[in-house]
Amino acid sequence: MLADHQRLTGLLLAAPALLGLLVFVAIPFLLALTLAFTNLRLGSPLPVEFVGFDQFRRIFSDPAFLRALVNNTVFALLVVPLQTALALALALLLQQRLKGRVLFRTLFFMPVVFPLSLIAVIWILIYAPGPNGMMNHFLTTISFGAWLPRDFLHDPYLALPAIMLTSIWQGTGFQMLILLAGLQTIPDELYEAARIDGAGRMATFLHVTLPQLRNTLIFVVLVTTILAFRLFDQVQIMTHGGPRNATTTVMFEAVQAAFGRQQVAIGAAMSVVLFVVVLVITLLQQHVARHEREIS
């Protein structure tokens, strides 16, 4: 009797959330898979028809989209290791029980609570051209005058690195906090054992800290890599994809197509590519994490 009653209650309690996920995640997802194979354009007089892989052929021969894929990949390849290394270094510094560590942790984490759009706007001014610009002045000072002022966000070679630096500055605190939590789960006995064995700091780091932190590191790398492929806000605000597609990204191209040019089908095809990339990264991470577990 009670079991029957519970049977319905469970479904009823979960129903609102399940309905939400169905209508606003599952259906749009299936819709993306469907629309990508049509020629749908908002406001177009042409009848909507099935066009097979045409849209995919189109986007993969579109130089801007290919450039976007390259940019996202370069972004991931540079930002992920740099940001992870920096976050790990800060986490290790905070791991020592120094006075004031809570204050430092707060300061490093502060950029994370700032909306990305606001951060993008602040950094536009930091990258202001001319010797008076903050970044230009900083680089000139630390290079003893060797740095000549540049217009970062309009420079085809510097615009993407400039966005990367902003992203690292914003995202490091988040990673640092997760790594710090990971560090704190390492049992003291392991460090004690390493000390008794006469292991130095470097040896302890390589043979105790890193292996113990492996799963946390894999997770943090996964999240940052996926974020690299979702990159949009900074690009939209700081460079609008330019100069000459130097900073365009998959998401920026998708929004341009679907929203700017009303080409919903092309935007959907780009979304599908984005999802496949995210899926591959996730499966890869799970594979690596499982593999590591089997070894240990």
Binding site: L18, P28, A32, V264, A268, S271
Partner: peptide
């Protein structure tokens, strides 16, 4: 089976569905 569905949906980022959701 529904919980497995929820866990699967967890990996779909907003960016991957923004365009069709916009159309919807």
């Amino acid at each position: 089976i529904l919980f497995a569905g929820v866990l699967t949906i967890m990996i779909v980022p907003l960016e991957a569905i923004a365009v069709p959701l916009f159309y919807q």
